[in-house]
């Protein structure tokens, strides 16, 4: 144990930077998402507030901050109010362990990948607690869908990441990044293409993003698990969605695209660039594909991704043993 003043200051600064990053990310990504949606659907998107509608999300945030939080009559008050906080809270810890650059990590732990997987489970818990506490049938159906979806999609995700951990011999994100240094073809996307394929699909499932946004399902469930939420409760759930999007994008950048290793001049800017590109890809996918049906969603997972993940793990183990 080394609790030096330097470590404490570093930790506090990192937390502060992460809070700023998460808020900025939500503001920018909501604007980008609406602009991209407009582009795909041949309409301008937000354009009234600020140049190109840039200040639209700022105005929306102020509106959400000032709005009343309406409590449904027969809801479970304590759970209803604590669920959005629970959705957002673990994120601060998770973002501490991501290696943004060679010397830019909030908290270096040798089990970083495991920590991230462990704490993302709390978000599912927040969604089901919120959906159940609302005492609304749409919320409850949304929560039930969220449970079966995230439990199912976690298995291929872990199998894919396990193959990576096998190959690098570590769960430390810094070690995994260093193993990909050198030139572009040492990135894990070229060495584990099948794992990357599984990872991308499970990302959409785990973040509840379209085409797998069944827990929200506006067309059949009005708002899904956050139907009854208003004001900051809704805003926190919304922020949690964009934050988990950023989390999986950072994971994709660090695990599969070499993290801070670029074609030239390594540094944290590469991690952020790759993260941004992956998030743009997720937005593009959302406005391109229609929502799948629930049985299709689970069939893809149990009948295709799970066997593929096992196969990938098995092949990785055999190759590692032989060579």
């Amino acid at each position: 144990m080394d609790i030096s003043l330097l470590n404490v200051i570093k930790l506090l600064l990192a937390l502060l930077a992460i809070i700023v990053l998460l808020v900025l990310n939500s503001v920018v990504m909501v604007w980008l998402e609406r602009k991209a949606a407009g582009f795909v659907q041949r309409r301008p998107g937000p354009y009234v507030v600020g140049p190109h509608g840039l200040l639209q999300t700022v105005a929306d945030s102020v509106k959400l901050l000032a709005k009343q939080i309406v409590l449904p009559g027969s809801s479970d008050r304590l759970l209803f109010l604590s669920a959005p906080v629970l959705a957002m809270f673990p994120m601060f810890l998770i973002f501490l362990v991501i290696p943004y650059g060679p010397w830019l990590t909030g908290l270096e732990v040798n089990l970083g990948l495991l920590l991230i997987l462990a704490f993302t489970g709390l978000e599912t818990l927040a969604v089901i607690a919120g959906g159940w506490a609302s005492n609304n049938k749409y919320s409850l159906i949304g929560a039930a869908r969220c449970v079966s979806q995230s439990v199912a999609y976690e298995i291929p995700l872990i199998l894919a990441l396990l193959a990576l951990a096998f190959m690098c011999g570590s769960l430390d994100l810094t070690v995994i990044t260093e193993a990909q240094s050198g030139w572009v073809w040492r990135w894990n996307i070229f060495r584990q293409p099948l794992a990357f394929f599984i990872f991308v699909i499970t990302c959409f499932g785990e973040t509840n993003r379209a085409p797998f946004d069944l827990p929200e399902g506006e067309s059949e469930l009005t708002g899904g698990y956050h139907t009854e939420y208003s004001g900051m409760g809704f805003a926190l759930f919304f922020m949690a969605e964009y934050t988990s999007m950023m989390l999986v994008s950072f994971l994709a950048a660090v695990l599969f695209f070499g993290g801070s290793n670029g074609p030239f001049i390594n540094g944290f800017w590469w991690t952020f660039l790759k993260m941004g590109l992956f998030m743009t890809f997720m937005i593009w996918v959302r406005w391109t594909f229609p929502r799948v049906r629930f049985d299709q969603l689970l069939n893809i997972n149990w009948k295709w991704l799970l066997p593929l993940g096992l196969l990938n793990l098995w092949v990785t183990a055999v190759v590692l043993k032989l060579f």
Binding site: V109, L111, L114, L115, L117, A118, F119, T120, G121, L122, T124, L125, I128, W132, L140, A143, A144, V147, S148, S150, V151, E154
Partner: peptide, 24 residues
């Protein structure tokens, strides 16, 4: 820490969520 994270991953991320599912 390995045990701690496994505890979170398995007991909170999977088992309690499944218990919740059973209740519902």
């Amino acid at each position: 820490p390995f045990m701690a994270f496994m505890q979170l991953l398995i007991y909170i991320g999977a088992i309690s969520v499944l218990i919740f599912f059973a209740i519902m």
